[in-house]
């Protein structure tokens, strides 16, 4: 059982996702990066790409991100995306 952390995916128009996840992979401007629970505080800009989420329990999901930001602090991760397109789970 992997440890979980809070993930929040927001766009200017709405909240796309909010809940506990085990792992998230985001398309940073410097390359893809994966984040697990208890990651160090981090702020990065996002490029266009695919965001992958492993939910608590192991179900995986991916969606298209069109730029934005990603922040981790105090075991809370936030994606501020310019646009999100939800795709079928990977």
């Amino acid at each position: 059982m992997a440890t979980e952390f809070e993930l929040c995916i927001l766009t200017p128009e709405k909240t796309v996702f909010e809940g506990a996840v085990e792992y998230v992979e985001v398309p940073g401007t410097e390359g893809y990066m994966g984040v697990l629970a208890h990651h160090a505080a981090l702020v990065t800009a996002l490029a266009d790409g695919t965001l992958k989420v492993r939910h608590a329990g192991g179900r995986e999901e991916s969606m298209r991100v069109g730029g934005g930001f990603f922040e981790v602090s105090n075991n809370r991760a936030t994606v501020l995306a310019d646009a999100i397109e939800e795709a079928a789970g990977a």
């Binding site: 401007t29 160090a40 981090l42 702020v43």
Partner: peptide, 15 residues
């Protein structure tokens, strides 16, 4: 100040 030790990628200015 909790953002103080945060890692910035690429860097704070660019972000």
């Amino acid at each position: 100040p909790r953002g103080g030790e945060a890692i910035f990628e690429p860097d704070a200015e660019a972000i």
